[in-house]
Amino acid sequence: MSGAIVVGYTATDAGADAAALGARLARSIGARLHLVLVLPAEGTRSPAVVPPERAYEEHIRAQAKKWVEDAIVRLPQAITRTGHVRIAESFAEGLISAGEEFGARLIVVGAAGGGLFGRHRLGSVASELLHSSTIPVALAPAGTAGQDDHVIPRVTVAVGTRPGAENLLDEAASIATESGVGLRLVSLVPFDVPPGLDTGAIRLAGSTHAHEVLAVAKELLPLDLGAVVEEAPGDTVEDAVANLSWLPGEVVLVGSSRLAQPRRLFLGSTAAKMLHELPVPMIVVPRTRAEAGVR
């Protein structure tokens, strides 16, 4: 088996989406799935107007445990999975702690309520994770639970010109290899260059950079798995993402911002613009060097 996946679960549509994406990833890479429901420390205590009672805390935990057990039963039987109820100061803190305890490859969370079907909307938990996690975070768009796909059909990685993209490419190649699927490299160079360059120079730089990355990617992949380059069409990041073709169930990886602290996440401007248009899950990978692959 290949590591573990921690899913931030709640008994909501977003929780079901996160569980569905976690199951897809676990099945694809052969990982153990840990479904984690985090209760806030103050939420397990009885109201302040009455003395704290152990029965009240036990009631809250019992309800949480029932939610997790019900969710575990609904997951594919072929996946090795366990459920956990944790107490922490914040949901994100509890997930990061669980991720470190279980040696997680990924932490998976769903979209905030009120978002469009098939699209992302960052909530407070996802935002906190993206500012503090040392573990890659997978974001499930709304409606993921309603999809019938059981494995990842392709891995896409968005690459820019920023140095330090080796970790991003390594992670993308690793997921593609373990899933037995091809790797698509999408060049974001046209949106990641200094202002003032003419269009021809930008396109030339993008094409050159993309093929350099392709050569590296092919060295990382097994011979029977392919890697291709696709230049993002359009004049803006949003146009590019909207005009790209996306397979149902595929995932796209991006690097964290160059402004993030080493080994921590921060969703940069380019990745944030991508997120608004993406119809597929996004995995944000922490940088381990001085800069990140995609801002």
Rank of each mutant, 00 (worst) to 15 (best):
P136H: 05
G182V: 05
S132C: 08
S97G: 11
P136C: 10
E100M: 08
L139W: 12
E128L: 12
A92T: 06
G182K: 00
G182H: 11
S174W: 15
A172R: 01
G182N: 15
D148T: 13
I107Q: 05
A165Q: 06
P153G: 02
A98E: 15
E93S: 15
A140K: 09
A145T: 04
G143D: 07
S179I: 05
A142S: 10
A158H: 02
G110P: 13
E100Q: 14
A140T: 12
S124M: 08
R162K: 06
A98D: 11
R119N: 02
I96A: 08
E171P: 00
V181Y: 02
F102L: 09
R154Y: 03
V109N: 04
R184N: 06
V151G: 01
A173G: 10
L122W: 08
A112Y: 10
P163T: 01
V137M: 12
S124A: 15
E166F: 01
V151M: 11
G160H: 04
S97C: 03
V137E: 10
L106F: 15
V151T: 14
E100I: 10
V109K: 00
H150V: 15
D170V: 06
R119H: 10
V151H: 13
H131T: 13
G164Q: 00
V181Q: 02
H131C: 11
L122G: 10
F91A: 14
E100V: 09
S127T: 15
V137P: 14
A92G: 04
I152P: 10
Q147M: 14
E166H: 04
G115F: 07
P141A: 01
A172F: 03
G164P: 02
T134G: 14
V109T: 15
L185W: 02
S179F: 04
V151W: 14
S132I: 03
I175N: 00
A112S: 13
E178Y: 08
I96Y: 02
Q147F: 04
